[in-house]
Design a protein around this nucleic acid. Structure first.
Length: 907
DNA sequence: CAAACCGACGACGTC
DNA sequence: GACGTCGTCGGTTTGA
């Protein structure tokens, strides 16, 4: 049966653009999308279809825009780097001899739809090469979709599986769900599941419309509200199959390629593999059995390698061969597989290694599913690997290696010589990227789709532990992890290496910090469990009483924990006037809103009191005791090194960085963070570090002088701003000055300041104006930072960490203003983060061979230690010296140290 | 068909 | 401004 392949050009261009790293050629022209499309084409041509066409959108509006003015109005215009690749792409397609179709007035989709219909009618098998799910409506026996990027084929069965409806009903489903990207309106709150359910019940969209009044609930109302526009939505999503075309399908045959033109284009864009193929006389017209090229084919030389020479190591012979490789390898990628995501509770199930792209092994040591073959024993394997893992002269590489280091530490192995971590490479390259996990990075930088944990272990309640995963599956997954880590490093490192500032941040701060954080996590902190349990009971009693009062004040019983019920009681039942709205337009019941209502009714105050206690109990006094590790008797937090865009750490399970401090009840929780008998808690925090950094970065004389003089900085600021002697500053003036200083650090606006101080906005603006008049250097610095951000798209910390800013060019005023505030704030917060990280590294080095003090926690500008009572003075001096010496600024770094029986007392 | 799970939301703790 | 965590709520998925 003859075959027609229809290539959806725009779909591939967009998908390749987003899936591949932003590659460029020697001239700096962007080539990433081009590269993806070329590889796809080469793969397609190798199959030598009888007929084929490359279909792209023609410039100008099409009939859908006439039908509906807002069509695709939400779609961002094509990024410049992508636009620049359109013409070269068409040139290459042309040179390959592939027929190109661009028909004005309709979309590429409609051309494809029409050709598919015509070919199908002539008994030609049709394959639509696309990544766009909307084409599912065309599928039937003889018409299938192929996505060469994910290597998936969609036939009728797959459509039903994926959408829950047959292909003929796909347009009905799309009309119901709508498409926010193309701005096709649908039924609000109606997703694919609901739409499929309705269609199953009423047969079709017309059936659903006819029975709209039978559908209950909120969603029924939504449906009825949009009923009139549903037929239009269906028309918008329906791909046309009757576009007038001049050429018959049978005219769509490939011409002879223009080899000279191809050579020039491939050379210009540095497509080496394609060029090689061309010179070998293989222009893609060869046998259909040739293997398809993958997108990873030609990425940075070292990242490219055929997938999957993964060895499952079950014998000592195999193990010894790998051990020999590890001993001579210039770089070892390693990864561990365990029974738990919590490194402190995890048991080692296997290890994987890679020493070159594509060649990796998995050494299972504790799989125990039925029928699992004998494996090398864990203890013996670890004993053999220990010298390599602990040797600082053997360079190692991981992805989120802190986890693996902690797991191995549980078996008495101290990993040394960690020189690279692909997660941190990604983080330093772009800390604003939301994800730095391996799967995302593999997709982004390698164009690879990795085996997911869920693929081998299942998901949800039926998920099994890794020890129960069959060895072949485990090997596929685990060895790939090491392999991908290796490839990622080789894709990322060249980018990092040439940016000197970033490279220094990475090598001198982030990488050395890994073992320090690992040590703090493993050490954990001692908690007074019985005290917290008593507090829970006490809080519970008081909450019960407040709950009783609240119900009495409301005149009815309701759930105090439910903002929704509270809102109904306050604004519907009691008739109070709502003051603020939540982002979704509901009347807000947040602290500010309730405080404003407190003089009108007793209930708001009671709720506020209740909430303060409920937060403490649910988040802290109940949870912390449950997080004590039974083996160590201590609480082990996790620090996230690649989570915050400014370079700060975050912490979770538990989050130690938001333990209460402001209220008396809150401080009682800090009192439960204790030291063992004979030990003390020592807390050292940087005083006003961000303002000091502002003074340094801006060079503002007034601010520098204030810090050199010492004393109360807020009082000094108030004296300047209000033009009085420091001694004459009123409490109110100091409060205002403090709010301005605070606002400066968090990039607050006049609006935010007014809200903070409870004053009118013009007055707040006036305060800020006076502040800037007194500290002109600060103002100039902020202006200059904003300008740089606009010019470069990023700002930098003192140590060269680069922080990219989204939204700076946004047409949305609020978003843009937010980005500008972030631009000013980021260098301060980021520099502070750099400084404390440097301090941690220095302190940890000093503590390394001591057994009388341990670093336990980091809370942004504070470090917490436990110190043996007899060593307190020595340790205090050493810590202060290293913290103060972590940076040389134009103002001194001041560190305040407290010592006590618990964390609260240490302040 | 109820229980378990999931994601969005509103709220709030810290720096 | 950032972050992580809590409980609720409406929805979907799962499994007895």
């Amino acid at each position: 049966m003859p075959k027609l392949v229809l290539i959806d050009g725009s779909s591939y261009l967009y998908r390749a653009f987003h899936a591949l790293p932003p590659l460029s050629n020697a001239q700096g022209e962007p080539t990433g999308a081009l590269f993806g499309v070329v590889n796809m084409l080469r793969a397609t041509l190798k199959a030598a279809p009888d007929y084929l066409a490359f279909v792209a959108d023609a410039p100008g509006p099409n009939f859908r825009n006439e039908l509906y003015a807002a069509y695709k109005a939400n779609r961002p215009s094509m990024p410049e780097e992508l636009r620049a690749q359109v013409e070269p792409m068409l040139a290459i397609v042309e040179a390959l001899g592939v027929p190109i179709l661009r028909i004005p007035g309709v979309e590429a989709d409609d051309v494809i739809g029409t050709l598919a219909e015509q070919a199908h009618a002539q008994g030609i098998e049709v394959e639509i090469s696309t990544g766009d799910k909307d084409f599912a409506q065309l599928v039937r026996p003889g018409i299938t979709l192929v996505n060469t990027m994910t290597n998936t084929v969609t036939d009728t069965a797959r459509v039903i599986e994926k959408f829950g409806v047959s292909p003929e009903r796909v347009v009905d489903l799309l009309a119901l769900t709508g498409d926010s990207i193309d701005n096709v309106p649908g039924v609000p709150k109606c997703g694919p599941k609901t739409a499929a359910k309705w269609l199953a019940e009423y047969g079709s969209l017309d059936g659903v419309i006819a029975h709209a009044d039978e559908i209950g609930g909120k969603i029924g109302e939504s449906l009825r509200a949009v009923l009139p526009q549903l037929p239009l939505s269906r028309e918008l999503v329906t791909i046309k199959t009757d576009v007038p075309l001049e050429l018959p399908v049978t005219a769509l045959v490939r011409r002879a390629p223009d080899v000279d033109a191809l050579r020039e284009l491939y050379t210009r864009y540095a497509f080496k593999a394609a060029l090689k193929e061309l010179e070998a006389g293989d222009t893609g017209a060869a046998a259909a059995s040739a293997p398809a090229a993958t997108a990873a084919d030609e990425l940075p030389a070292t990242a490219a390698a055929p997938p999957g020479r993964y060895e499952l190591v079950l014998t000592w012979e195999q193990f010894d061969a790998w051990l020999d490789k590890l001993r001579v390898a210039p770089l070892i990628a390693f990864d561990t597989e365990t029974t738990s995501l919590d490194a402190m509770r995890a048991e080692l199930v296997g290890l994987s290694f890679a020493v070159e792209a594509g060649a990796a092994c998995y050494i299972p040591v504790a799989h125990e599913h039925p029928g699992a073959p004998a494996q090398l024993p864990r203890e013996a394997v670890l004993a053999a690997l220990k010298p390599v893992l602990e040797d600082p002269a053997r360079p190692k590489l991981g992805q989120h290696a802190k986890y693996d280091i902690n797991v191995l530490a549980g078996y008495g192995i101290t990993v040394r010589g960690l020189v690279h971590d692909s997660m941190l490479e990604s983080y330093v390259l772009d800390p604003t990227a939301t994800r730095h996990d391996m799967d995302s990075l593999a997709k982004k930088y390698l164009g690879l789709s990795t085996v997911k944990y869920e693929d081998v272990a299942g998901k949800g309640a039926r998920q099994i532990g890794f020890a129960q995963v069959a060895l072949e599956d485990a090997c596929r997954y685990a060895a790939e992890d090491a392999d991908v880590t290796w490839r990622l490093h080789h894709a990322l490192w060249p980018r990092l290496e040439r940016e000197l500032g970033l490279r220094k941040v990475y090598e001198a701060i982030e990488i050395p910090l890994v073992p320090v954080l690992a040590g703090m996590e493993r050490r954990g902190v001692l908690i007074d469990v019985s005290s917290l349990k008593r507090q829970s009971q006490e809080l519970g009693r008081r909450m019960l009483e407040l709950e009783r009062q609240a119900h009495a004040a409301a005149g009815c019983v309701f759930n105090l924990d439910s903002p929704k019920q509270l809102q109904a009681v306050l604004f519907d039942q009691l008739g109070l006037a709502p003051r603020l709205k939540t982002p979704t337009g509901q009347p807000s019941t947040n602290e500010e809103a309730l405080a404003a209502l407190a003089d009108q009714h007793a209930l708001p105050r009671i709720v506020l009191d209740y909430r303060a206690l409920a937060k403490l109990r649910s988040t802290y006094t109940d949870k912390l005791p449950a997080m004590v590790n039974p083996r160590t008797g201590r609480v082990h937090t996790s620090y996230h090194q690649a989570a915050v865009a400014t370079g700060r750490l975050s912490s979770s399970d538990p989050n130690l960085q938001n333990i209460p401090v402001r209220t008396e009840e809150g401080r009682r929780i800090r009192q439960a963070f204790i030291a063992p008998p004979g030990w003390r808690v020592l807390a050292a925090d940087y005083s006003q570090i961000e303002l000091r950094i502002m003074a340094h970065l801006s060079g503002d004389e007034g601010l520098l002088e204030a810090f050199h003089a010492g004393g109360d900085i807020h009082r000094a600021t108030a004296a300047e701003v209000f033009g009085v002697e420091p001694a004459q500053v009123s409490a109110e003036q100091r409060r205002a000055a403090k709010a301005i200083n605070f606002g400066l650090m968090y990039g607050m606006s006049a609006f935010g300041l007014a809200r903070q101080l409870g004053i009118e906005r013009p007055e707040a603006a006036q305060y800020m104006a006076r502040y800037f008049a007194r500290y002109p250097g600060v103002h100039a610095f902020m202006e200059a930072t904003r300008e740089r951000a606009h010019r470069d798209g990023y700002v930098e910390t003192l140590f060269g960490r680069r922080l990219y800013l989204e939204n700076l060019k946004s047409r949305n005023q609020a978003l843009r203003a937010g980005a500008e505030r972030a631009a000013v704030n980021a260098p301060m917060q980021g520099t502070a983060a750099d400084i404390i990280k440097r301090a941690m590294i220095a302190v940890a080095a000093w503590l390394e061979d001591r057994d009388d003090a341990h670093m336990l926690m980091q809370v942004h500008d504070e470090l917490v230690f436990e110190v043996r009572a007899d060593a307190v003075e020595t340790v205090r001096a050493a810590i202060v010296e290293r913290m103060c010496g972590a940076a040389q600024l134009a103002v001194p770094l001041l560190v305040e140290v407290g010592v006590g029986a618990n964390w609260d007392e240490a302040h």
